[in-house]
């Protein structure tokens, strides 16, 4: 058990070093506003993809309504700071909790469904959330909620992302996390092992939804605005794509998927008319060649590199 603690501390140390480097580069303006924006966006997308991976990858529940929870977080967070004038920290907490609560309420009836049916239901619910927001005048309706102060800094986004990654990683390596994995592997066997499958499905869904809400608060407080058009089902597809591209059920995969796709998107921003065409072609080609995602369900670790590159390929191929 001590080795686990040591490993965690080492990872945390590496995060601190990474943070210090990027923060310094930002400070001396080596990283300009364009890439600063994209770094924040990457962090937000990492939160979204690891939280969706908890639902889709670990628990095996096919959800594609994540943008709805992102929206709930963004709007409740903005209400706290803009309408009520309360601090950002509170917005983060309330945004997360509201999203989680909604995830719980939605998850309870819908998680009885499985496979494609659950996917469609979550897609529909995500859209219902968006359409409801669209019709609430209090939060600006179709023109969105404007004038949100920029409270999200690199430091906030970075450390919240690290925190969420740790929470989800620890969750996976605990009894409730193993229950979720068991449900993914074989729901009927899981139930006969004494696992209340509904409880753990809803638990994973609630946690995932909550963290999507956190991402929403960060999002709204960086881009000054919460607009219904940012939370369509296309946004949910985006997040799902990151998870599947990285490798469903792999934390490092989800992170890599988010970083990679956001970065590709940013690089292509110079060619606006070609951007989505190239993006979609990349996606199709990657999926055809690596349907199991970049990492499969494996985790990327230093051990892989020690064994050499060829083994890396083999390990992921076996899925």
């Amino acid at each position: 058990m001590n080795s686990i603690k040591k490993h965690d501390l080492a990872t945390l140390g590496a995060c601190a070093v990474l943070f210090a480097i990027v923060q310094t580069l930002l400070f001396v303006d080596f990283i300009g506003p364009f890439w600063e924006l994209n770094i924040i966006l990457i962090l937000i997308n990492v939160i979204l993809s690891v939280s969706l991976n908890l639902i889709n990858g670990y628990t095996g529940q096919f959800s594609i309504g994540h943008a709805g929870f992102l929206a709930v977080g963004a709007y409740t967070g903005a209400i706290i700071t803009v309408k009520l004038g309360l601090p950002f920290e509170l917005a983060l907490v309330v945004g997360t909790l509201c999203s989680a609560l909604l995830g719980f309420l939605i998850g309870l009836p819908t998680l009885r469904l499985n496979g494609d049916y659950l996917a469609i239901a979550t897609l529909g619910l995500g859209e219902i959330i968006r359409i409801c927001i669209l019709n609430i005048e209090y939060v600006g309706g179709a023109s969105g909620l404007m004038g949100i102060p920029r409270f999200t800094t690199f430091a906030w986004a970075f450390w919240i992302t690290v925190f969420i990654i740790f929470v989800i990683k620890n969750f996976k390596n605990s009894a409730p996390g193993r229950c979720c994995l068991a449900i993914r592997e074989n729901e009927i066997a899981a139930e006969t092992m004494g696992i209340d499958t509904t409880k753990y499905k809803v638990m994973a869904f609630t946690i995932g939804a909550g963290f999507a809400g956190t991402a929403g608060v960060l999002f709204a407080h960086y881009f000054y605005i919460a607009h219904p058009a940012s939370f369509t089902f296309m946004r949910s597809f985006d997040i799902l794509t990151m998870v599947v591209l990285g490798g469903l059920g792999s934390m490092t995969g989800a992170i890599t998927g988010a970083v990679l796709l956001t970065a590709i998107s940013a690089v292509l921003a110079e060619y606006p008319e070609w951007r989505m065409v190239i993006y979609s072609l990349t996606l199709i080609i990657l999926m055809i060649n690596r349907p199991q995602g970049l990492f499969g369900s494996k985790e990327l670790s230093l051990k892989m590199f020690r064994l050499g590159g060829s083994d890396n390929g083999r390990a992921t191929e076996s899925k």
Partner: peptide, 17 residues
């Protein structure tokens, strides 16, 4: 996984170790 039924620790204890 089959032993999970007998585990007592809470979600908070699991996540925050």
């Amino acid at each position: 996984i089959a032993y999970n039924m007998h585990i007592q620790y809470s979600l908070a204890e699991a996540v925050c170790r």
